[in-house]
Computed example of a mutant assay.
Amino acid sequence: MNNRLLALSVAAVAVSFTTAYGAGTYSSGAGAAVARATVSPAPEVTPTEETPTGTASPETSPTATASESASPVGPGCAALPTSGPGSPAELANEPVGTALSHVPTLSTLATAAQKAGVVQTLNSAEDITVFAPSNDAFNKIPKNQLDKILADRQALSTILAYHVVKGRKTPTDLEKGSFTTLQGGTITTSRSGQTFKVNDATVVCGGLRTRNATVYIIDTVLKPTAGTASPTSSPTSSPTSSPTSSPTSSPTPS
């Protein structure tokens, strides 16, 4: 009888440790050590419980999230090359003045920047936002007027300076914003649903990042408002030395 009672007691102790394993109460403390030493299933169960904890971090990596949030958005982004020159990955490693020349839909703007002599000054600027008129935007201007603008370095510099503001602006910044441009005038931005407006222009591809700037491709060339760029804010030398009346006396986009 005594032997049977002893056998039942040992069996009861074994069952209690097994139950504790299943309930997860072995995870720390002396009880866990005893359970691992006493119950044979321990080597099989312990890795199952502990291993996922060490492997969960790659699935929640903040790097992947940041990369996704930095991707350009908008219907016009589909026209960007998916790889090589002009692709978002390549543009991110280039200064903005150089990057503009590699985006197929911005070839007219790239030519304008060269004619105005501002490519290197754009490349050397730090943390700016460029509202970049697409080729279609320039095509809205009558050809004879556009030719005059492209031939007038002073007017061209003033117009381009009006498309640049300090700081890298995010889509959130553009939801309801008012910004002083490097030309000295002001632009206003707004959002309606998924559409962003810059004055009267619509953003067709936004948040395109280069090494030193964030670019928003727009469908209309902006008309400069009255303003005088200061030497400390303008990346170009031409607008800073020109009189305020320059945009008025020179051709401007219609």
Rank of each mutant, 00 (worst) to 15 (best):
E68Y: 04
A37K: 10
A20H: 11
A35P: 05
A23R: 13
S71M: 11
A35W: 05
A37E: 04
G54K: 00
E59M: 15
A42I: 05
A23C: 11
S27E: 08
Y26H: 05
P62F: 03
S28M: 06
R36D: 05
G54S: 01
G22E: 10
T63S: 07
A56I: 06
S57K: 15
T48V: 12
A66V: 01
A30W: 13
A37N: 03
T19N: 09
T60D: 04
S67V: 09
A35R: 08
T18K: 14
T63V: 13
A30G: 11
P62W: 06
T46S: 11
A30I: 14
T18E: 13
E68L: 06
Y26F: 09
P52C: 04
T18Q: 14
A32F: 10
S57Q: 13
P47C: 00
G24F: 06
G22R: 12
P47A: 00
A56W: 05
A42D: 04
G54M: 02
A66Y: 00
F17C: 05
T60Y: 04
S57V: 12
R36S: 02
A64F: 08
G29N: 11
E49V: 12
P43G: 04
Y26D: 00
Y21R: 13
Y21M: 10
A33D: 12
A23E: 13
T63P: 02
E59R: 14
T51E: 01
